[in-house]
Nucleic acid binder design. Structure first.
Length: 801
RNA sequence: GCCCGGAUGGUGAAAUUGGUAGACACGAGGGACUUAAAAUCCCUUGGCCGCAAGGUCAUGCCGGUUCGAGUCCGGCUCCGGGCACCA
């Protein structure tokens, strides 16, 4: 036997598989389909580090397992290549983004090609390919057509360093997620997608998904549903009224003032009534100039200004209440106005204390005891109503509805989710396919004119003026209006980086079900994605946008199922050994190419899957990888033992147990324990003098998804002419797994005192008797009779004395 | 502040969901082979007591339920993640 030469073997099979096309997706496959998808990477300039392929290894093992189990498998790979990261890289290195992306993709592909993946490269996707983004634009046009894309001039988040507007999802603690700059508020003409129309469905349908609970919870938090009531407060001596949103209508009798956000539109109309307008105006100006961080800073002292001369009427009891503007009231949430109940809300309490406003308690947990304790902070707990007229004594929860109805309010639901700011003032994105015409307004580019190609441009650097670099290309901008034929101008904003990734998984879809999203190949109905593998950092960005678009396409009738990704598996990070993120910046990057060179791709695969639970963050260890290599070498050396016809009952038994465990572990993405079981089997076979070819063949079949190169080589050496990766996955024989004897544990008072081998079929009575007969037990009992004996068949006997 | 996770040897971790805690692997120590080294193989490896047989403590901390708790319940501490002046 030759020694295990990973370089020779991996090169040989890499080339052979490419030639034979063993991983080509078969359109004609019968039986169930399995669509296994990785989140597409950005082809960044840094190249791959060993952390990147971890998720791809998992999906690779899983999809190979599915294929061997007779499933038709779709497993494409692609590049999510539009957006700021690619563009910023290009600017920094002074090359055109398109050139940079091409170069980076080439590099990524080279690196991936060494790792033994079963991708079908004929189905490679590139979101920056005009033939791809024509459909991204098509989806946008449909959104526009249905009124779900609208133009807005509201102030939005602006990153002064990236020089573009951003969506709420692109912020982290009020800073730009890409570059860390503090974002500003800036009024800007924007295209915005009405994702909030889908808030309820995005929330509701989470329940049925096989996703990690933590991701679902993140999305629930992000959507932020709360049930409450809209209640009108009339303004004294005018026809105006303030609509407030509250989740605590039960506390309405305790309202002692009303607060508006500084941006509230009613202020214009109230202006004539406001006696201290100058002061009010100054406050409005000040809050406009504050960043989100300044306004929402923790423990910030409350500020505000009373609108002198304006009084609101509490609809519950007719009381006249002062009205304030205060920047703790957010313009974009609820109705931009609140009723303030200092007794039962912490913020209102703080504000009331500062402005010396009355506190009126209307919820008491000790009702009907009239001696409610004097509050020294806001009481937000349960209780019954007091000081609330006819509602006194009612449970707070019940009173919410009753009080709302009493004052003619409306029960409503509000969400924290905000509409998706969809334009970027940058070059490297899909052009938004709209035309501005003086006569017709905003006109859609007709579908037959798609794609609207991103033009070549001399300077693609952001302008910072609020216009995209495209605005400077007159010959591209100026077009005829498709409606009236008059002078028109193209929309020059581009789409955000998340546009292309919101539907790439749909690139493969049955043309019969939708003529629009026709793929370059004729496809069977692959979607929805059966297993989607990627990082948890996409919880409230990519994964929520993709669900939104999917649901929209469902409403259009383009897809016939409600959710895009049935099962989601999160991959845990691989950090450097110092625990830090791998990055060129820290100089701690481990390149997979080097590991493949030194140990081989199969070793890298086994090691990364063995490191720990798949979804957990682990630190790379250049010490531990040797364990994976030793395991493979041991498996390789087992060839020497193929001299016998029979492997013995114990080996067979262990093999079948292993088949069972590895199968269920792959299915559950528990690769660490699957490999551990393979190691146990290998160690055991290593102790045998001889092995049968049958046993060895079954072993390398279940090893194949983990170490595809080596198992293919061994399979060939067994005399096989076809690929092991198209073999049928072994089934375990339940009869073989059944044990005839097991080790019975005998405990006294819960402590292990003896162990003995017993027959599996012994009854509880038999075991009871057997345990008490043991000489060691008799010795320890020293004549005492047990108080109680607990027998657990198959496990233990516990004698209580 | 609210909502999710998590904490087990020197290290990564396992434990059939209430039944032998530490599988598997790395590292470490000792030995074999070798002129030597590498590779490989064998033994030891949670703490303490003991020559040993064995005993005893031990799954972040404190309590509880149970014949029996890493696992269930109550109360904390620390770490990671999401949300957060969201009415």
């Amino acid at each position: 036997m030759a020694s295990y030469n990973h370089k020779k073997i991996e090169k040989k099979w890499r080339e052979a598989w490419q030639k034979s096309g063993v991983y080509k997706t078969s359109d004609a496959l019968k039986g169930s389909k399995s669509y296994v998808l990785d989140m597409f990477p950005y082809p960044s300039g840094e190249g791959l580090h060993v952390g990147h392929p971890k998720g791809y290894f998992a999906s690779d093992i899983y999809s190979r397992f599915k294929r061997m189990n007779g499933y038709a498998v779709l497993r494409p790979m692609g590049w999510d290549a539009f957006g700021l990261p690619a563009e910023n890289f290009a600017i920094k290195n002074k090359i055109h983004p398109r050139v940079a992306v091409e170069k980076n993709i080439k590099r990524f592909k080279e690196q991936l090609s060494l790792l033994g993946f079963n991708y079908d490269w004929e189905r490679e996707i590139n979101t920056t390919d005009p033939e791809y983004y024509r459909w991204t634009q098509w989806i946008f046009l449909k959104l526009f057509e249905k009124g779900l894309a609208y133009e807005s001039h509201e102030p939005i988040n602006w990153c002064p360093s990236c020089k573009t507007g951003l969506a709420n999802e692109d912020l982290e603690d009020g800073k730009c997620e890409r570059c860390g700059s503090v974002v500003e508020k800036r009024p800007l003409r924007q295209w915005v997608l009405r994702i909030t129309d889908y808030a309820e469905r995005l929330l509701e349908d989470l329940d049925g998904l096989n996703w990690p609970e933590s991701i679902k919870e993140s999305q629930r938090n992000w959507i932020g549903r709360s049930e409450g009531a809209e209640i009108d407060f009339k303004i004294k001596e005018t026809d105006l009224k303030i609509k407030v949103f509250t989740t605590r209508a039960d506390t309405l009798f305790g309202a002692t003032y009303v607060a508006l956000s500084p941006e509230h539109e009613l202020l214009e109309e109230l202006k004539p009534e406001i006696k201290n307008w100058k002061e009010v105006e100054k406050y409005i100006e000040e809050s406009k100039n504050k960043t989100e961080i300044e306004r929402t800073a923790e423990n910030k002292e409350k500020t505000g200004v009373e609108l002198r001369g304006v009084k609101a009427i509490n609809p519950a009891n007719g009381e006249e209440l002062p009205v304030f503007i205060a920047d703790y009231v957010l313009a974009h949430y609820g109705t931009g106005a609140t009723m303030a109940v200092p007794a039962h809300d912490e913020r209102d309490w703080a504000f009331a204390k500062k402005f010396k406003l009355p506190v009126k308690q209307v919820i008491c947990q000790f009702y009907p005891d009239p001696k409610c304790p004097v509050l020294d902070e806001a009481y937000i707990g349960d209780g019954k109503l007091v000081g609330s007229g006819k509602f006194n004594g009612m449970e707070a929860e019940k009173a919410k509805r009753a009080v709302t109805e009493f004052v003619g309010g409306k029960i409503t639901v509000k969400y924290k989710l905000r509409d998706w700011v969809f334009s970027r003032q940058r070059y490297w994105g899909e052009p938004i396919p709209l035309i501005h015409c003086d006569n017709c307004g905003v006109v859609a580019v007709p579908e037959s004119y798609l794609p609207v190609k991103l033009p070549e441009v001399k300077s693609y650097e952001p302008t910072g003026t609020g216009e995209s670099p495209l605005a400077g290309i007159a010959e591209w901008v100026n077009v005829k209006c498709p409606k009236c034929g008059g002078e028109g101008k193209r929309e020059t904003n581009t789409m955000p980086q998340w546009a292309g990734s919101s539907w790439y998984y749909l690139r493969y879809i049955d043309p019969k079900n939708n003529k629009a999203l026709v793929d370059k190949k004729k496809e069977k109905y692959w979607s929805p994605v059966d297993v989607y593998v990627g990082g948890a950092e996409h919880a409230t960005r990519h994964l929520i946008y993709a669900r939104f678009w999917h649901k929209f396409l469902y409403d259009l009738g383009v897809v016939n199922y409600k959710e895009p990704f049935l099962r989601l598996q999160n991959v845990g990070l691989i950090t450097a050994k110092d625990g830090k993120k791998m990055s060129k910046r820290y100089g701690n990057v481990v390149n997979p190419d080097d590991i493949v060179e030194a140990y081989g791709a199969d070793t890298l695969r086994v090691y990364e899957m063995f490191m720990g639970p798949f979804d957990q963050t682990v630190a790379w260890s250049s010490e531990s990888i040797i364990g994976a290599r030793r395991f493979l070498e041991k498996a390789w050396r087992l060839q020497d033992k193929l001299i016998g016809a029979d492997s013995g009952e114990n080996t067979k038994k262990l093999l079948h147990k292993t088949i069972q465990k590895v199968s269920s572990d792959i299915d559950g993405f528990r690769f660490n324990t699957a490999i551990s079981q393979l190691m146990i089997l290998t160690n055991s076979m290593d102790e045998q003098k001889e092995l049968s070819r049958e046993v060895y063949g079954l072993f390398i079949k279940i090893l194949a998804p983990f170490a595809p190169h080596m198992s293919e080589e061994l399979w060939e050496q067994l005399g096989n002419k076809t690929s092991i990766h198209l073999e049928k996955w072994p089934e375990h024989d339940p009869k073989l797994i059944k044990e005839e004897v097991y080790e019975l544990v005998i405990q006294i008072n819960g402590k292990v005192r003896n162990k003995a081998e017993v027959a599996t079929d012994l009854s509880e009575e038999d075991l009871h008797e057997f345990a008490l007969k043991q000489s060691r037990v008799r010795e320890l009992l020293a004549g005492q009779s047990p108080k109680k004996v607990i027998v657990v068949r198959g496990r233990l006997v516990n004698i209580v004395i």
